[in-house]
Design a protein around this nucleic acid. Structure first.
Lengths: 125, 125
DNA sequence: GCTTGCCTTGACGCCGGTGTCAAGCCGTAC
DNA sequence: GTACGGCTTGACACCGGCGTCAAGGCAAGC
């Protein structure tokens, strides 16, 4: 499979696949041309990367998930390294959720205060 | 008040204050030197900016809050323009909270699945 | 031989808030 | 005079995941 075909199948671009390869996530053999030749299994790898990215993982954090897939596992998150990253990420998300919830409450308070106060820019003399 | 002093009082840097000015948020007169001279009221403005930034507002979105303060209001969020931004931001935060909560649940599921499955990288023959 | 379409590497752009360095002016203290 | 600290503008660096353009090689059809 050439890069354009894999990109099409994975719903992304050749540029993106080269970027993943540059960061050690996707692998390709080379034709005599120099063209990248991909195994069919790389499609699952790319899918793993895309879904992890969409979940907020950084590329570096996705590496163990890909390694886990390559080791032949049915899912990328069943290996110890991946579990470690998973725990860390969950902690980050929980933390972020906490702070974001606080922010949300502050903003809600400000909104209701602004509405009940109804003083649109000192319109009352 | 010179820029260094205001930066100190506001817990930030001269560089940052110049950036805010460049984006039309902070104002300063100029000494014969060319040195920026700040009114005492600018400290509140800078505080407003810093707290809004910490709440996830972008600089451009903070402009109406600053304008509201300059108009003499006791808080930056009581003017119509600011309220509009506030509503929009609340919607964004709510949306983000929703997606982040979904992500969190997926990750939790993956973690518990990994733990109960206890197949650390195909260790079982 | 020429066009067309795939591929290659290399490199800059973006976003947003700030750090940081350069080169130079200003005022005060020694 | 000179050393020092504060100020000025201008401009590059950073982070991360790409988009995008440049310049060129390769294969296939006419």
């Amino acid at each position: 499979m050439l890069i354009g075909e894999l990109a099409e199948l994975a719903g992304t671009s050749p540029r993106t696949l080269r970027y993943y390869e540059e960061h050690g996530l996707v692998r390709a053999r080379r034709d005599a041309n120099g063209y990248r030749q991909y195994d069919d299994g790389e499609l699952r790898v790319v899918h793993e990367i895309r879904t992890r990215l969409a979940s907020g993982f950084a590329l570096d954090d996705i590496r163990p998930f890909v390694a886990c897939l390559r080791a032949g596992n049915s899912a990328g998150h069943v290996c110890p390294d991946a579990v470690a990253v998973l725990r860390r990420r969950i902690a980050e998300v929980d933390d972020y959720l906490g702070r974001l919830t606080e922010v949300r409450e502050r903003l809600h308070d400000q909104l209701s205060q602004a509405l009940e106060q109804e003083s649109p820019c000192r319109m009352r003399p």
